[in-house]
Design a protein around this nucleic acid. Sequence first.
DNA 1: GTCTATACGTAGATAGAC
DNA 2: GTCTATCTACGTATAGAC
Lengths: 220, 220
Amino acid sequence: MNGEHDAPRRQRLTRAEAKARTRTLLLDAAARIFARKGFTGASVEEIAEAAGFSTGALYSNFNSKEALFLELLSDRQNDRIAEAARALDSHEAGSGEAAAELGRLLIDVADKDIDFAPLQAEFWLYAVRNPQALETMAAKLREPRRALEQVISTSLAERGAPEGVPAETVATVVAALFQGLVRLRRLDPSSVSEELFAQALTWLFAGIDAAGTPTGAEDD
Amino acid sequence: MNGEHDAPRRQRLTRAEAKARTRTLLLDAAARIFARKGFTGASVEEIAEAAGFSTGALYSNFNSKEALFLELLSDRQNDRIAEAARALDSHEAGSGEAAAELGRLLIDVADKDIDFAPLQAEFWLYAVRNPQALETMAAKLREPRRALEQVISTSLAERGAPEGVPAETVATVVAALFQGLVRLRRLDPSSVSEELFAQALTWLFAGIDAAGTPTGAEDD
DNA sequence: GTCTATACGTAGATAGAC
DNA sequence: GTCTATCTACGTATAGAC
């Protein structure tokens, strides 16, 4: 009855597209459930049901629970980080505006996207426990990291900071601060105000300027 | 033969002491295994065996796997953090020495005590997922946090920073930075050099000074 | 107080129907 | 390609011996 190489494609949704949609839905559900229950704590049945499918459908799209998790680790974790890079790109790092923008992003990540930080933590733990995944994760962080470095590098030059201050180092500090503050805010929101990240960045860049010109002398 | 209220105490190891020792050994093993496999990933049998006991002995000392984990969360997590507070106490925060000392501590935590950061991550995830444990965890972090605040407060006063800079805020920034850098170093050691934390602290405090006295004016 | 043996539930993964 | 049913293994927790 239903020939398979001739008939289908009735509503612009080919078989391949339908499968791709299923995959996407499963990945979305997996991100939520993994974030809420952890890699080992989450069950494949739970994930499949949350996506509206059965475990059979899940295994038809992914070889194993681990493969599903690793695909998230490779493909999904950049979403928010890329957003941060964009937020930085529209202003200059070190300026009050960029700091304020990043501050807002921090609050968003910590408060609105409640699954983000726990999922990142799961990724980090998995990477730390599985050396082969460690390189994958480090690689995935490199791209947005370079974007951050680039913006910081530009900003440092504009501020007249000396060449003794590599943008790479500053980018690391900013990234670490961001992560750390997001996690602290989840534990105790009152300890990490909405303006704190912006404030810290302001201090940091002022300190870099001061370190470049300790007593007020400039030029190199 | 062996009367129980009269005879024992032959090698200075009473029954109560023996049990306490068992508990300690189980807790030590639990810390290791939970750090390496995660809360859900670790099995009680694994933990018991690592401590040299059986699951029966474990359940004779703890009501459940969760109770064991919660005891670690409540009692053990302060070890390293208290150490940080002590490191700060011997110098003044903001001084080059204190910064260097903390920098060494960071490297120690990141490289030597390989179970510390993953265990903290497990605690954090558990707290984020279990609101009732969240308060427990936040409370446990408060004590060393106050110590950090105290030292920073003193240091700020010495440096002539204005009252507009609360030590509480600075302490949060320092703590977040520490956590964030430890985790980044585990992913990519080359991105977080041994001197980076000290460097970041130096910048931070210089920036605070500069913010207090923007163009070079002092006095209050 | 600790061990051995086990009950009971649940989870990852597969097989075969549709 | 997805679902239902199931196989198998493992993990928590308990019971009873020593």
